[in-house]
């Protein structure tokens, strides 16, 4: 389990503040959704947690250590962008990942791919968009890092692929030990999978709650809560 603490965290791009003075202690495990309108700062937050970008001021701590170059061992990052090499086969991608990441579990990767009916001899460049997304997720999840940061894993996918991706996460994530952060616009679909939610709006976290408590209190769907707090 990992303690992720954000302290007075601010990130500016030029003069524009993407995130402003965040003071948050993330849950130690389980699935946390990070939702909010486009441009609200969700992806920036994930990248800061993984140590891929640096805060303008304030800090991100993973188990008491500043997030930075070495955070890769604790936090895996699934990019919204293309992160696969076209010329590789699926098998090649898996062995490449095994070479790059010391914590990579090749056997688990193969199990995940089999569950998603991907064949190891297929070439990345011949895969459909949905299958590329499945492969990316399998490669990320096969590392079993204490923290998983998934940036828009559902975006642009058809309903079947979205269902498949969410199913893969709940089947293989260790919800008692691993923390999975997911950003998404598919709020309605994501809601039943969440333990916790952060709603980001204009660089601030306006809701930081357990999803079940939120529901018991408001008797509303997450999307309605989102609508209310982002007007």
């Amino acid at each position: 389990m990992t303690e992720v603490n954000l302290h007075k965290l601010t990130k500016k791009y030029g003069r524009k503040e993407a995130l402003s003075q965040l003071e948050i202690q993330l849950p130690k495990a389980g699935i946390t959704g990070i939702i909010g309108p486009n441009g609200s700062g969700k992806s920036t937050l994930l990248k800061l947690i993984c140590g891929l970008i640096r805060p303008s001021s304030g800090s991100v701590e993973l188990n008491g250590e500043q997030a930075g170059r070495k955070s890769g061992a604790v936090a895996a990052y699934l990019s919204e962008e293309d992160s696969l090499y076209d010329y590789m086969t699926i098998k090649g991608t898996v062995s490449f990942a095994a070479g790059v990441y010391p914590d990579f579990d090749q056997e688990l990767a193969m199990t995940l791919l089999k569950e998603m009916k991907l064949h190891e001899s297929e070439k990345v460049k011949e895969l459909s968009r949905g299958n590329k997304a499945r492969l990316k997720l399998a490669v990320t999840m096969a590392r079993k890092t204490p923290v998983l940061c998934l940036d828009e894993p559902l975006s642009g996918m058809d309903p079947l692929v979205r269902e498949d991706i969410l199913r893969l996460i709940v089947t293989h994530l260790d919800v008692d030990r691993q923390l999975c952060l997911i950003t998404s616009h598919e709020v309605k679909e994501l809601e039943p999978f969440l333990d916790h939610v952060l709603i980001v709006h204009e660089g601030r976290v306006v809701v930081d709650r357990n999803v079940e408590d939120l529901k018991e209190e408001n008797r509303k769907s997450l999307i309605d809560v989102l609508r209310e707090v982002t007007v």
Binding site: V170, P192, F193, L194, E212
Partner: peptide
């Protein structure tokens, strides 16, 4: 727990509860 979570499309902690 995991199987039902995957089938119903919910968080495993919800199934445990």
């Amino acid at each position: 727990v995991r199987l039902l979570a995957a089938e119903a499309g919910v968080n495993p902690n919800t199934v445990s509860r």
